[in-house]
Amino acid sequence: MSVAEPPPPERGQTADERGRDVSAEQAAFEGETTWARRLVRAADPRMLLSQAQDYPVGIKQFLQFCLILVYPAWLFLVLLAWPIWLVGKAFEGILYVLFWPVRAIHKRNNPEEYAAFQAELKARKEAKKAARTS
C-alpha cells in the first residue's frame, strides 16, 4: 500500500560537484590560451579586485581597498612576468637540448617505457588544455 508523503527535499552539492570555485574574471584569465592574452587579463584591475569576492561585507571592501593600493606593484610584477617567462622558456629549450642524449639512451634501451612516458606527457598536456577550456 502506498502512502502519500512529501518528496525528499533536494540536497545541495559538494565542492567537487560544484566545480572549481573561482571568480568569472579569474576563470576568463585561466581560459586564455596565449601568454600575451593572459598578461592582458592579469593586468585588468577587475581581475585583481575579484580576488576579494565572497568575503563577508566589510572585509570584502577592506580587501578591495588593499588590492587597489597594491595594484601598481601588481602591474609591475605582471610586466616583469613577461621577461621571466621568456627566460624560463629559453632555459627549457636549453635543457631540452642538453638532455637529448639521455632521452636517446632511454629510447634505445627501454623503448616501451619511453613510449609510455611520452604518451603520459602528451596526455597531461591535453588534460591541462581541457581543464583550461572547460
Partner: peptide, 12 residues
C-alpha cells in the same frame, strides 16, 4: 562550510 573567499582564488 567555507566562510570567506573563493576557494581556488589566485590570491589564496
Amino acid at each position: 562550510y567555507h566562510w570567506a573567499g573563493k576557494q581556488a582564488a589566485l590570491a589564496s
